[in-house]
Nucleic acid binder design. Structure first.
Lengths: 194, 194
DNA sequence: CGCAAACGTTGACATTTGTCAACATCATTT
DNA sequence: AAATGATGTTGACAAATGTCAACGTTTGCG
Protein backbone atom coordinates (compact mmCIF):
# COMPACT_ATOMS: atom_id res chain seq x y z
CA UNK A 1 0.00 0.00 0.00
CA UNK A 2 2.67 2.52 0.98
CA UNK A 3 5.39 1.37 -1.38
CA UNK A 4 4.58 3.79 -4.16
CA UNK A 5 4.19 6.72 -1.80
CA UNK A 6 7.60 6.10 -0.26
CA UNK A 7 9.12 5.78 -3.71
CA UNK A 8 7.38 8.96 -4.76
CA UNK A 9 8.66 10.93 -1.78
CA UNK A 10 12.19 9.62 -2.23
CA UNK A 11 12.16 10.67 -5.85
CA UNK A 12 11.53 14.27 -4.80
CA UNK A 13 13.99 14.68 -1.94
CA UNK A 14 17.75 14.54 -1.81
CA UNK A 15 18.29 11.93 0.95
CA UNK A 16 16.06 8.82 1.01
CA UNK A 17 13.77 8.41 4.00
CA UNK A 18 15.21 6.49 6.95
CA UNK A 19 13.29 3.40 8.16
CA UNK A 20 12.06 5.48 11.09
CA UNK A 21 10.77 8.18 8.75
CA UNK A 22 9.10 5.58 6.58
CA UNK A 23 7.32 4.29 9.67
CA UNK A 24 6.19 7.83 10.46
CA UNK A 25 4.80 8.32 6.99
CA UNK A 26 2.94 5.02 7.18
CA UNK A 27 1.53 6.01 10.53
CA UNK A 28 0.40 9.43 9.39
CA UNK A 29 -1.37 8.77 6.10
CA UNK A 30 -4.83 7.26 6.30
CA UNK A 31 -5.69 4.64 3.70
CA UNK A 32 -9.17 5.01 2.28
CA UNK A 33 -11.07 3.21 -0.43
CA UNK A 34 -13.31 5.17 -2.78
CA UNK A 35 -15.97 3.52 -4.84
CA UNK A 36 -16.69 4.80 -8.33
CA UNK A 37 -18.48 8.19 -8.14
CA UNK A 38 -17.63 8.68 -4.47
CA UNK A 39 -16.55 12.22 -3.64
CA UNK A 40 -13.19 13.19 -2.24
CA UNK A 41 -14.30 16.82 -2.29
CA UNK A 42 -17.56 18.57 -3.06
CA UNK A 43 -18.02 22.12 -4.25
CA UNK A 44 -18.43 24.47 -1.31
CA UNK A 45 -16.43 22.35 1.11
CA UNK A 46 -12.96 23.18 2.29
CA UNK A 47 -10.49 20.67 0.87
CA UNK A 48 -9.50 18.87 4.02
CA UNK A 49 -7.41 16.15 2.46
CA UNK A 50 -4.69 15.74 -0.05
CA UNK A 51 -4.93 12.26 -1.48
CA UNK A 52 -2.13 10.16 -2.93
CA UNK A 53 -3.64 7.71 -5.39
CA UNK A 54 -2.33 4.19 -5.03
CA UNK A 55 -4.74 2.52 -7.44
CA UNK A 56 -7.60 3.90 -9.49
CA UNK A 57 -8.48 7.24 -11.05
CA UNK A 58 -10.13 10.49 -10.04
CA UNK A 59 -11.30 13.64 -11.76
CA UNK A 60 -11.63 17.26 -10.71
CA UNK A 61 -14.34 19.37 -12.30
CA UNK A 62 -16.61 22.37 -12.01
CA UNK A 63 -20.30 22.52 -12.84
CA UNK A 64 -21.52 25.61 -14.67
CA UNK A 65 -24.88 27.44 -14.65
CA UNK A 66 -26.29 25.08 -17.22
CA UNK A 67 -25.30 22.02 -15.27
CA UNK A 68 -22.44 21.16 -17.61
CA UNK A 69 -19.37 19.56 -16.09
CA UNK A 70 -15.94 20.94 -16.99
CA UNK A 71 -13.05 18.67 -16.18
CA UNK A 72 -10.07 20.59 -14.84
CA UNK A 73 -7.78 17.79 -13.76
CA UNK A 74 -7.40 14.06 -14.12
CA UNK A 75 -5.56 11.94 -11.59
CA UNK A 76 -4.31 8.37 -11.76
CA UNK A 77 -1.83 6.26 -9.80
CA UNK A 78 1.00 8.21 -8.19
CA UNK A 79 -0.77 11.55 -8.47
CA UNK A 80 -2.01 13.79 -5.72
CA UNK A 81 -5.66 14.73 -5.82
CA UNK A 82 -7.02 17.74 -3.99
CA UNK A 83 -7.72 21.42 -4.42
CA UNK A 84 -4.50 23.03 -3.34
CA UNK A 85 -5.99 26.51 -3.13
CA UNK A 86 -8.73 25.41 -0.77
CA UNK A 87 -6.38 23.13 1.17
CA UNK A 88 -3.90 25.92 1.83
CA UNK A 89 -6.11 28.97 2.06
CA UNK A 90 -8.93 27.13 3.87
CA UNK A 91 -11.44 28.64 1.47
CA UNK A 92 -14.46 26.72 0.12
CA UNK A 93 -13.55 24.93 -3.06
CA UNK A 94 -15.20 25.63 -6.40
CA UNK A 95 -14.27 22.14 -7.54
CA UNK A 96 -15.65 18.67 -7.18
CA UNK A 97 -13.33 15.71 -7.03
CA UNK A 98 -14.69 12.20 -7.31
CA UNK A 99 -13.49 8.71 -8.09
CA UNK A 100 -13.85 7.76 -11.72
CA UNK A 101 -13.12 4.14 -10.91
CA UNK A 102 -12.75 2.32 -7.61
CA UNK A 103 -9.73 3.90 -6.01
CA UNK A 104 -7.32 3.25 -3.16
CA UNK A 105 -5.91 6.46 -1.76
CA UNK A 106 -3.76 7.63 1.13
CA UNK A 107 -5.14 10.73 2.82
CA UNK A 108 -3.27 13.47 4.61
CA UNK A 109 -4.67 16.56 6.36
CA UNK A 110 -2.81 19.81 6.72
CA UNK A 111 -2.23 18.98 10.40
CA UNK A 112 -0.78 15.63 9.31
CA UNK A 113 1.53 17.43 6.99
CA UNK A 114 2.78 19.78 9.70
CA UNK A 115 3.26 16.84 12.05
CA UNK A 116 5.27 14.98 9.44
CA UNK A 117 7.34 17.88 8.20
CA UNK A 118 8.84 18.42 11.65
CA UNK A 119 10.76 15.14 11.62
CA UNK A 120 11.02 15.16 7.81
CA UNK A 121 11.78 18.73 6.78
CA UNK A 122 12.54 17.52 3.28
CA UNK A 123 8.78 17.34 2.81
CA UNK A 124 8.78 21.11 2.46
CA UNK A 125 11.23 20.64 -0.35
CA UNK A 126 8.91 18.09 -1.89
CA UNK A 127 5.71 20.11 -1.75
CA UNK A 128 7.59 23.14 -2.97
CA UNK A 129 8.80 21.24 -6.00
CA UNK A 130 5.34 19.83 -6.54
CA UNK A 131 3.88 23.33 -6.49
CA UNK A 132 6.49 24.56 -8.90
CA UNK A 133 5.84 21.72 -11.28
CA UNK A 134 2.10 22.09 -11.10
CA UNK A 135 2.50 25.75 -11.81
CA UNK A 136 4.71 25.12 -14.79
CA UNK A 137 2.44 22.41 -16.16
CA UNK A 138 -0.62 24.62 -15.77
CA UNK A 139 1.22 27.48 -17.45
CA UNK A 140 1.90 25.22 -20.42
CA UNK A 141 -1.67 24.02 -20.57
CA UNK A 142 -2.87 27.60 -20.46
CA UNK A 143 -0.57 28.58 -23.26
CA UNK A 144 -1.77 25.63 -25.33
CA UNK A 145 -5.39 26.36 -24.63
CA UNK A 146 -5.05 29.99 -25.68
CA UNK A 147 -2.99 29.47 -28.78
CA UNK A 148 -3.45 25.98 -30.14
CA UNK A 149 -6.33 24.38 -31.99
CA UNK A 150 -8.35 21.54 -30.52
CA UNK A 151 -6.53 19.09 -32.78
CA UNK A 152 -3.11 20.30 -31.64
CA UNK A 153 -4.12 20.09 -28.00
CA UNK A 154 -5.37 16.56 -28.44
CA UNK A 155 -2.18 15.53 -30.21
CA UNK A 156 -0.17 17.05 -27.40
CA UNK A 157 -2.15 15.21 -24.77
CA UNK A 158 -1.76 11.96 -26.64
CA UNK A 159 1.98 12.55 -26.59
CA UNK A 160 2.44 13.76 -23.03
CA UNK A 161 -0.19 11.64 -21.25
CA UNK A 162 -1.12 8.70 -23.45
CA UNK A 163 -2.19 6.87 -20.29
CA UNK A 164 -5.10 9.28 -19.87
CA UNK A 165 -6.52 8.20 -23.21
CA UNK A 166 -6.50 4.62 -21.98
CA UNK A 167 -8.00 5.34 -18.62
CA UNK A 168 -10.78 7.81 -19.34
CA UNK A 169 -13.59 7.75 -21.92
CA UNK A 170 -13.57 10.23 -24.75
CA UNK A 171 -16.16 12.57 -23.37
CA UNK A 172 -14.02 13.07 -20.27
CA UNK A 173 -10.93 13.68 -22.37
CA UNK A 174 -12.91 16.12 -24.51
CA UNK A 175 -14.02 18.06 -21.48
CA UNK A 176 -10.47 18.12 -20.15
CA UNK A 177 -9.37 19.62 -23.47
CA UNK A 178 -12.19 22.15 -23.34
CA UNK A 179 -14.05 20.79 -26.37
CA UNK A 180 -17.21 18.78 -26.94
CA UNK A 181 -17.24 15.02 -27.34
CA UNK A 182 -18.49 15.44 -30.91
CA UNK A 183 -15.55 17.63 -31.84
CA UNK A 184 -13.13 15.16 -30.29
CA UNK A 185 -14.77 12.31 -32.16
CA UNK A 186 -14.31 14.19 -35.43
CA UNK A 187 -10.73 15.07 -34.65
CA UNK A 188 -9.97 11.43 -34.03
CA UNK A 189 -11.51 10.26 -37.27
CA UNK A 190 -9.54 12.98 -39.09
CA UNK A 191 -6.30 11.83 -37.50
CA UNK A 192 -7.09 8.19 -38.27
CA UNK A 193 -7.24 9.00 -41.98
CA UNK A 194 -3.75 10.47 -42.00
CA UNK B 1 13.48 52.96 -5.20
CA UNK B 2 13.35 50.14 -2.65
CA UNK B 3 10.32 51.30 -0.72
CA UNK B 4 7.79 49.28 -2.66
CA UNK B 5 9.93 46.16 -2.61
CA UNK B 6 10.31 46.33 1.17
CA UNK B 7 6.57 46.88 1.53
CA UNK B 8 5.93 43.98 -0.80
CA UNK B 9 8.17 41.61 1.14
CA UNK B 10 6.68 42.67 4.47
CA UNK B 11 3.20 41.99 3.18
CA UNK B 12 4.13 38.38 2.49
CA UNK B 13 5.98 37.47 5.67
CA UNK B 14 4.86 37.27 9.29
CA UNK B 15 7.50 39.51 10.96
CA UNK B 16 8.50 42.76 9.22
CA UNK B 17 12.10 43.07 8.07
CA UNK B 18 14.55 44.52 10.60
CA UNK B 19 16.54 47.61 9.53
CA UNK B 20 19.55 45.36 9.07
CA UNK B 21 17.58 43.03 6.81
CA UNK B 22 16.29 45.97 4.85
CA UNK B 23 19.86 47.08 4.31
CA UNK B 24 20.73 43.58 3.09
CA UNK B 25 17.87 43.57 0.61
CA UNK B 26 18.90 46.98 -0.70
CA UNK B 27 22.44 45.76 -1.07
CA UNK B 28 21.49 42.59 -2.89
CA UNK B 29 19.04 43.73 -5.53
CA UNK B 30 20.49 45.50 -8.54
CA UNK B 31 18.50 48.44 -9.90
CA UNK B 32 18.30 48.51 -13.66
CA UNK B 33 16.50 50.74 -16.12
CA UNK B 34 14.90 49.22 -19.21
CA UNK B 35 13.97 51.29 -22.19
CA UNK B 36 10.83 50.44 -24.13
CA UNK B 37 11.36 47.23 -26.14
CA UNK B 38 14.49 46.28 -24.21
CA UNK B 39 14.65 42.59 -23.31
CA UNK B 40 14.77 41.21 -19.81
CA UNK B 41 14.83 37.70 -21.27
CA UNK B 42 15.06 36.31 -24.78
CA UNK B 43 13.82 32.97 -25.99
CA UNK B 44 16.54 30.35 -25.70
CA UNK B 45 18.33 32.04 -22.81
CA UNK B 46 18.23 30.80 -19.24
CA UNK B 47 16.27 33.24 -17.11
CA UNK B 48 19.05 34.62 -14.97
CA UNK B 49 17.07 37.31 -13.20
CA UNK B 50 13.83 37.77 -11.39
CA UNK B 51 12.83 41.40 -11.69
CA UNK B 52 10.70 43.40 -9.31
CA UNK B 53 9.06 46.21 -11.25
CA UNK B 54 9.22 49.56 -9.51
CA UNK B 55 7.88 51.65 -12.36
CA UNK B 56 6.79 50.72 -15.86
CA UNK B 57 5.37 47.65 -17.57
CA UNK B 58 6.64 44.45 -19.14
CA UNK B 59 5.17 41.63 -21.14
CA UNK B 60 6.01 37.95 -21.53
CA UNK B 61 5.26 36.26 -24.83
CA UNK B 62 6.05 33.43 -27.20
CA UNK B 63 6.48 33.66 -30.95
CA UNK B 64 4.94 30.88 -33.04
CA UNK B 65 5.95 29.35 -36.39
CA UNK B 66 4.17 32.08 -38.29
CA UNK B 67 5.90 34.83 -36.37
CA UNK B 68 2.81 35.67 -34.34
CA UNK B 69 3.33 36.86 -30.78
CA UNK B 70 1.25 35.31 -28.02
CA UNK B 71 1.22 37.27 -24.78
CA UNK B 72 1.35 34.97 -21.76
CA UNK B 73 1.81 37.44 -18.94
CA UNK B 74 1.64 41.15 -18.30
CA UNK B 75 3.54 42.84 -15.50
CA UNK B 76 3.23 46.29 -13.99
CA UNK B 77 4.41 47.97 -10.79
CA UNK B 78 4.86 45.65 -7.83
CA UNK B 79 4.93 42.52 -9.96
CA UNK B 80 7.76 40.08 -10.49
CA UNK B 81 8.81 39.46 -14.06
CA UNK B 82 10.77 36.39 -15.06
CA UNK B 83 10.31 32.84 -16.29
CA UNK B 84 10.15 30.87 -13.08
CA UNK B 85 10.57 27.52 -14.81
CA UNK B 86 13.78 28.58 -16.50
CA UNK B 87 15.01 30.45 -13.42
CA UNK B 88 14.59 27.42 -11.17
CA UNK B 89 15.31 24.53 -13.51
CA UNK B 90 18.07 26.39 -15.38
CA UNK B 91 16.55 25.36 -18.68
CA UNK B 92 16.42 27.64 -21.75
CA UNK B 93 13.26 29.67 -21.72
CA UNK B 94 10.62 29.48 -24.42
CA UNK B 95 9.48 32.99 -23.53
CA UNK B 96 10.55 36.51 -24.32
CA UNK B 97 10.13 39.24 -21.76
CA UNK B 98 10.58 42.86 -22.73
CA UNK B 99 9.70 46.29 -21.48
CA UNK B 100 6.47 47.65 -22.89
CA UNK B 101 7.28 51.10 -21.54
CA UNK B 102 10.38 52.53 -19.94
CA UNK B 103 10.76 50.54 -16.75
CA UNK B 104 12.71 50.69 -13.48
CA UNK B 105 13.31 47.24 -12.07
CA UNK B 106 15.23 45.60 -9.25
CA UNK B 107 17.05 42.47 -10.34
CA UNK B 108 17.92 39.40 -8.32
CA UNK B 109 19.80 36.28 -9.40
CA UNK B 110 19.29 32.85 -7.92
CA UNK B 111 22.63 33.24 -6.11
CA UNK B 112 21.38 36.55 -4.70
CA UNK B 113 18.29 34.81 -3.47
CA UNK B 114 20.24 32.11 -1.71
CA UNK B 115 22.53 34.72 -0.17
CA UNK B 116 19.54 36.67 1.10
CA UNK B 117 17.49 33.75 2.33
CA UNK B 118 20.22 32.74 4.77
CA UNK B 119 19.79 35.83 6.94
CA UNK B 120 16.11 36.20 5.97
CA UNK B 121 14.62 32.69 5.94
CA UNK B 122 11.16 34.21 5.68
CA UNK B 123 11.97 34.74 2.01
CA UNK B 124 11.37 31.06 1.48
CA UNK B 125 7.95 31.63 2.94
CA UNK B 126 7.46 34.51 0.54
CA UNK B 127 8.50 32.74 -2.65
CA UNK B 128 6.51 29.73 -1.61
CA UNK B 129 3.38 31.83 -1.24
CA UNK B 130 4.13 33.57 -4.50
CA UNK B 131 4.40 30.23 -6.25
CA UNK B 132 1.18 29.05 -4.71
CA UNK B 133 -0.64 32.17 -5.78
CA UNK B 134 0.76 32.09 -9.28
CA UNK B 135 -0.32 28.50 -9.54
CA UNK B 136 -3.82 29.28 -8.36
CA UNK B 137 -4.13 32.30 -10.63
CA UNK B 138 -2.94 30.31 -13.62
CA UNK B 139 -5.35 27.51 -12.75
CA UNK B 140 -8.19 30.01 -12.83
CA UNK B 141 -7.06 31.52 -16.09
CA UNK B 142 -6.85 28.04 -17.58
CA UNK B 143 -10.31 27.19 -16.42
CA UNK B 144 -11.64 30.43 -17.89
CA UNK B 145 -9.84 29.92 -21.16
CA UNK B 146 -11.22 26.41 -21.57
CA UNK B 147 -14.78 27.09 -20.57
CA UNK B 148 -15.65 30.73 -21.07
CA UNK B 149 -16.30 32.73 -24.21
CA UNK B 150 -14.04 35.56 -25.31
CA UNK B 151 -16.58 38.07 -24.05
CA UNK B 152 -16.75 36.47 -20.61
CA UNK B 153 -12.97 36.37 -20.37
CA UNK B 154 -12.71 40.02 -21.29
CA UNK B 155 -15.36 40.97 -18.74
CA UNK B 156 -13.50 38.99 -16.12
CA UNK B 157 -10.21 40.69 -16.93
CA UNK B 158 -11.88 44.09 -16.78
CA UNK B 159 -13.10 43.19 -13.33
CA UNK B 160 -9.99 41.58 -11.87
CA UNK B 161 -7.30 43.70 -13.55
CA UNK B 162 -8.84 46.94 -14.80
CA UNK B 163 -5.40 48.51 -14.57
CA UNK B 164 -4.20 46.31 -17.45
CA UNK B 165 -6.79 47.84 -19.74
CA UNK B 166 -5.39 51.27 -18.94
CA UNK B 167 -1.77 50.32 -19.35
CA UNK B 168 -1.71 48.18 -22.48
CA UNK B 169 -3.21 48.74 -25.93
CA UNK B 170 -6.05 46.58 -27.10
CA UNK B 171 -4.06 44.30 -29.35
CA UNK B 172 -1.90 43.32 -26.39
CA UNK B 173 -4.95 42.69 -24.22
CA UNK B 174 -6.49 40.66 -27.05
CA UNK B 175 -3.41 38.48 -27.33
CA UNK B 176 -3.34 38.00 -23.56
CA UNK B 177 -6.94 36.78 -23.79
CA UNK B 178 -6.08 34.49 -26.69
CA UNK B 179 -8.21 36.31 -29.25
CA UNK B 180 -7.53 38.64 -32.17
CA UNK B 181 -7.63 42.40 -31.89
CA UNK B 182 -10.61 42.49 -34.27
CA UNK B 183 -12.61 40.17 -32.05
CA UNK B 184 -11.78 42.26 -29.01
CA UNK B 185 -12.78 45.42 -30.82
CA UNK B 186 -16.15 43.86 -31.65
CA UNK B 187 -16.68 42.59 -28.13
CA UNK B 188 -16.06 46.07 -26.81
CA UNK B 189 -18.52 47.69 -29.17
CA UNK B 190 -21.07 45.01 -28.21
CA UNK B 191 -20.57 45.71 -24.53
CA UNK B 192 -20.78 49.46 -25.11
CA UNK B 193 -24.27 49.07 -26.53
CA UNK B 194 -25.55 47.29 -23.44
C1' DC C 1 -30.58 -13.03 -19.72
C1' DG C 2 -32.34 -8.56 -20.83
C1' DC C 3 -32.71 -3.82 -20.17
C1' DA C 4 -31.06 0.70 -19.13
C1' DA C 5 -27.33 3.62 -19.02
C1' DA C 6 -23.02 5.06 -20.81
C1' DC C 7 -20.37 5.70 -24.71
C1' DG C 8 -19.23 6.96 -29.36
C1' DT C 9 -20.37 8.47 -34.14
C1' DT C 10 -22.55 11.10 -37.70
C1' DG C 11 -25.31 14.75 -40.10
C1' DA C 12 -27.38 19.34 -40.45
C1' DC C 13 -27.09 23.59 -39.03
C1' DA C 14 -25.82 27.68 -35.81
C1' DT C 15 -22.53 30.41 -33.45
C1' DT C 16 -18.11 32.05 -32.40
C1' DT C 17 -13.93 33.50 -33.77
C1' DG C 18 -10.34 34.20 -37.26
C1' DT C 19 -8.51 36.18 -41.65
C1' DC C 20 -7.79 39.67 -44.82
C1' DA C 21 -8.29 44.14 -46.50
C1' DA C 22 -9.41 48.86 -46.17
C1' DC C 23 -9.45 52.87 -43.69
C1' DA C 24 -9.20 56.63 -39.86
C1' DT C 25 -6.74 58.54 -36.10
C1' DC C 26 -2.95 59.69 -33.43
C1' DA C 27 1.84 59.97 -31.94
C1' DT C 28 6.67 59.95 -33.22
C1' DT C 29 10.35 60.73 -36.13
C1' DT C 30 12.79 62.88 -39.67
C1' DA D 1 5.32 69.62 -42.56
C1' DA D 2 5.68 65.05 -44.28
C1' DA D 3 6.40 60.40 -43.49
C1' DT D 4 6.03 56.53 -40.73
C1' DG D 5 4.34 53.39 -37.58
C1' DA D 6 1.19 52.04 -33.98
C1' DT D 7 -3.49 51.69 -32.85
C1' DG D 8 -8.31 50.81 -33.43
C1' DT D 9 -12.56 49.97 -36.29
C1' DT D 10 -15.36 47.89 -39.77
C1' DG D 11 -16.98 44.74 -43.56
C1' DA D 12 -17.01 40.41 -46.12
C1' DC D 13 -16.05 36.02 -45.89
C1' DA D 14 -13.82 31.56 -44.05
C1' DA D 15 -12.71 28.23 -40.60
C1' DA D 16 -13.30 26.10 -36.20
C1' DT D 17 -16.21 24.55 -32.93
C1' DG D 18 -20.73 24.00 -30.71
C1' DT D 19 -25.61 22.38 -30.62
C1' DC D 20 -29.11 19.25 -31.34
C1' DA D 21 -30.93 15.07 -32.81
C1' DA D 22 -30.64 10.43 -34.27
C1' DC D 23 -28.65 6.14 -34.01
C1' DG D 24 -25.60 1.94 -33.04
C1' DT D 25 -22.60 -0.31 -29.81
C1' DT D 26 -20.89 -1.58 -25.45
C1' DT D 27 -21.15 -2.04 -20.52
C1' DG D 28 -23.04 -2.79 -16.13
C1' DC D 29 -26.29 -4.59 -13.34
C1' DG D 30 -30.90 -6.32 -11.51
Amino acid sequence: MFGNLIKYINSYISTPLTPEQVRLVEETFTPKKFRKKQYLLQEGEVSKYTAFIVRGAMRQYTVDDKGMEHITQLFIENWWAGDRESFIMLTPSIYNIDAWADTDALLMTNADFLKLSGPIPALFEMTRKMDERSYIATQKRLNASLNFSAEERYADLAKTHPEFLQRFPQHIIASYLGITKETLSRIRSQLAKK
